[in-house]
Write a protein that binds this DNA or RNA. Structure first.
Lengths: 124, 124
DNA sequence: AATAAAAATAGTAATCATTACTGTTTTGGC
DNA sequence: GCCAAAACAGTAATGATTACTATTTTTATT
């Protein structure tokens, strides 16, 4: 059975407090402020468990790090190849899931990443 | 400038011959049949270059390996969490790109992965 | 077809995000 | 409070990918 831990609470709370799609290292750095003894392994384990249980989403944008996001409804991640920023845009109306179900597939979660240049970086 | 090499040709040719979304190791194993001395590093380097130039697409489905796909038009990757198979379904009409462009983002490529259970694994 | 510079390769070593392991601490039911 | 299960901190190990280097191949030029 799953037990409470202040470490997991702090990790989930942090991921929910930002819209920056933090990596495990990012979360570790932030949570360390409140829990100076927290271990990096604990952060990894809890992020994986939270993603497994569907409380958060893990996103791979191709930069070599796993990113985490508390937004659970389907949306698109715009990843800027220059500055690295990840911007969300809503796509809950896209109908992608029904396309999948039509082929007999049981969808659990969907992630879309579009790589390119954000507005700022594109103009430079 | 870019030079010809039989290694790169064999790699591209193999990725174009299958619909299995091979990993670098898969490609290495297959191309080794024709070119027994090919190096794993050569496979990695060429796959990265081919993806960079847009000749193939790299897809991360969350299984710890980078997969490669010769299909360049926008489509959805259905990844079965049980058997690991990756199935493509067309989604070129989805309008995802125009959603991105509307926000001022310059799209280069888009990858959608839906995780879940394929038809076969779902019925078991 | 010989020559030389640039590009690519094979083979190996290094990197580093993530996972596994172990002994200790915390949690939750009785 | 007591105990077993769960979680933790700290550290070691894993393994996909990348970097490095000496050698070979390619391409342009003569």
């Amino acid at each position: 059975m799953k037990n409470y831990s202040k470490q997991r609470e702090a990790i989930l709370s942090y991921v929910r407090s930002v819209r920056t799609h933090p990596t495990a290292k990012d979360v570790y750095g932030a949570v360390k402020e409140q829990l100076p003894n927290i271990s990096l392994g604990t952060v990894y384990r809890n992020l994986a468990e939270l993603a497994e249980s569907g409380e958060i989403i893990s996103v791979n944008v191709g930069d070599g790090f796993e990113h985490y996001d508390c937004e659970r409804s389907y949306h698109i991640h715009l990843h800027c190849n220059k500055c690295g920023e990840i911007i969300d845009i809503d796509a809950s109306e896209s109908g992608l899931f029904s396309l999948a179900e039509k082929s007999g597939f049981k969808s659990e979660n969907a992630v879309t990443v579009i790589n390119g240049l954000c507005k700022n970086c594109a103009k430079q």
